[in-house]
Structure formats: structure tokens, C-alpha cells
């Protein structure tokens, strides 16, 4: 018997909406990353994109624990000497909250070509509105199965 190997055409992709209001950033990102990779499906395969589309709304209301809002810093480099830019999460969450969520999810996906493909299925919006009503996304509740 051969282990099932998904073909690109036969993967069903659903759409999920996650409301990020008062959800801790990392805990939000683990759920989003699981859905994007498809690890919640029995057809999961590590070399194929078996995941779903994820819409995150209210990214501006995401929660950070401790004093990370004041101390956590996001870095990026332009490539030029002295080109290291940094922005604190307090500023980032007010100006571009969708970027903060994207960064958190991106860090939890594989850092390879497949990972860069997976992140494109993530759509983050700072407010409660999203333009994907036509895809009929299903609300995703963050819950944990008790052990």
C-alpha cells in the first residue's frame, strides 16, 4: 500500500476568518500558520501546499503580553551600510498592525520557497472589514482540545 500523496488539483481550499481582537499575537499566529500549512487536514504533506486561506480581521486590536508593546522591536535592513531600520511594536501596531501579524505568522512557516508561497494565502486587515465576502469565509474560533 502506498501512502497518499496529494496532487495539486485535488486539494480543497477553504477560507477562514479569524477575529484578532484581544488575542495574544503568538497564539493567533500559531493557529493561522497551522491553517495555512494544512496541518489540520488528514491529507497534509510537507512538500505540497495543502492549506487553506486565512483572513485576519481587527489586527489593530491584537494583544501583546508583558511589556512587549514598549520593548519589542521589529528590525529590517535595506542592504546598504548602516541601513538597519527599527520600529517599536507600539508604533508598528498603531501605524501598520497588519505588518506585525504578518511578521509573526511568517516566522512560524517554513523558511523556504514553499513558505513564501504559503504566506500569500494570508490576508490581514487592521479593521473589522475585509473584501473577501465572495469567498464565503467561515469564522474560525480559537479553542484548544483538552488533553
Amino acid at each position: 500500500m502506498r501512502t497518499y500523496n496529494p496532487k495539486p488539483g485535488e486539494i480543497e481550499r477553504h477560507w477562514h476568518v479569524i477575529d484578532a481582537s484581544d488575542v495574544v499575537l503568538g497564539r493567533l499566529a500559531t493557529h493561522a500558520a497551522t491553517l495555512l500549512r494544512g496541518k489540520h487536514k488528514p491529507v497534509f504533506a510537507p512538500h505540497v501546499d495543502t492549506g487553506d486561506f486565512v483572513i485576519i480581521i481587527n489586527a489593530g486590536k491584537v494583544a501583546l503580553t508583558g511589556n512587549k508593546r514598549q520593548t519589542k522591536v521589529a528590525y529590517r535592513h535595506s542592504g546598504y551600510p548602516g541601513g538597519l531600520k527599527q520600529v517599536g511594536y507600539d508604533e508598528l501596531l498603531t501605524k501598520r498592525p497588519e505588518r506585525a501579524v504578518e511578521l509573526a505568522v511568517k516566522g512560524m512557516l517554513p523558511h523556504n520557497r514553499l513558505g513564501r508561497q504559503l504566506i500569500r494565502k494570508l490576508k490581514v486587515y487592521p479593521g473589522a472589514e475585509h473584501p473577501h465576502a465572495a469567498q464565503q469565509p467561515v469564522p474560525f474560533e480559537i479553542k484548544q482540545i483538552a488533553q
Binding site: 501512502t3 496541518k39 489540520h40 487536514k41 488528514p42 491529507v43 497534509f44 504533506a45 510537507p46 482540545i145 488533553q147
Partner: peptide, 19 residues
Amino acid sequence: LWITRINAAARANGMTYNR
């Protein structure tokens, strides 16, 4: 890979792989 898939299906049925 089998364990990952079993876990996914088990969680859909409200149980973890471990249990």
C-alpha cells in the same frame, strides 16, 4: 508523516493523537 495526518484527523474528531 502518518502521525501528523492521524493527529489532524483525531483533532477533527475532538481528540489528540496522544490520547
